[in-house]
Design a protein around this nucleic acid. Structure first.
Length: 219
DNA sequence: GGCTGATCATAG
DNA sequence: CTATGATCAGCC
């Protein structure tokens, strides 16, 4: 669909300034009254609008360009409202994975961020698509992410997954990522045996994405 | 009010 | 179950 990244960025810039209501209307999509039961609705609308590959393929949104698309909800003061989900965390057989071969590294190598301005109290249709920007981690940013990832992955490998809370990690944190509290997946237990635990995912802290915004827009 | 832990929809 | 897309909700 896009021959290169600038074409994609340009397409994203074309829809900046539109409200979600306007964009949804263009694509004949009904707007939910709440995101409570459709948490991924905004992200999916943007994927549709920009022509990202639909479905649940476990790779980037624009594989031919190596670009991952992420929406970033902002309050009206331009600060991130939420952390950003990156990918699920491998809890088993992860001994052969290194930072450079990890899913986190891959997903975050190039991200097209699309701010969505409007807090929880604002109706979804009136929220506004902000100015998109392309991000590739600086050496310093990558170092922080790598350190967090390695620390967390080591704890998982040592069978301490249950003791890793969301308080770990400067930029990257580990949190539950599941349909509900009943979901279970195998992981390494403290004696090296296999235990069942809640699936986990890696998330970028909002303090980290806030810095990305500030660096990009000199806020 | 921020943050952690819990949760929702859908596809395969 | 895992993957995709995330936000909700209540504790501190």
């Amino acid at each position: 669909m896009y021959r290169n990244i600038p074409e994609l960025l340009n397409a994203a810039e074309q829809i900046a300034g539109l409200t979600l209501g306007e964009l949804a209307h263009q694509h004949h999509i009904a707007i939910p009254g709440s995101l409570r039961r459709e948490k991924g609705w905004i992200g999916q609308l943007l994927e549709l609008a920009l022509g990202a590959t639909a479905g649940s393929k476990p790779q980037q949104d624009f594989p031919e360009l190596g670009v991952e698309l992420k929406t970033l909800p902002l309050a009206n003061n331009d600060l991130p409202l939420e952390s950003t989900f990156v990918c699920s965390a491998p809890l088993l057989n992860q001994q052969t994975i290194t930072w450079n071969t990890s899913n986190v590294h891959h997903k975050l190598s190039t991200v097209l961020w699309i701010p969505i301005i409007g807090d929880r109290t604002q109706n979804i249709a009136s929220r506004v698509i902000g100015t998109p920007w392309l991000w590739q981690p600086s050496a310093a940013q990558e170092q922080i992410l790598r350190q967090d990832w390695e620390d967390i992955m080591e704890l998982i490998a040592l069978g301490k997954v249950e003791s890793v809370s969301a308080r770990h990690g400067e930029a990257l944190q580990l949190r539950p990522k599941a349909a509900n509290g009943q979901s279970l997946t195998p992981a390494i237990g403290i004696d090296g045996t296999i235990i069942q635990t809640r699936p986990r995912g890696f998330y970028l802290r909002s303090s980290f994405t806030r810095k990305l915004l500030q660096a990009q827009f000199q806020l």
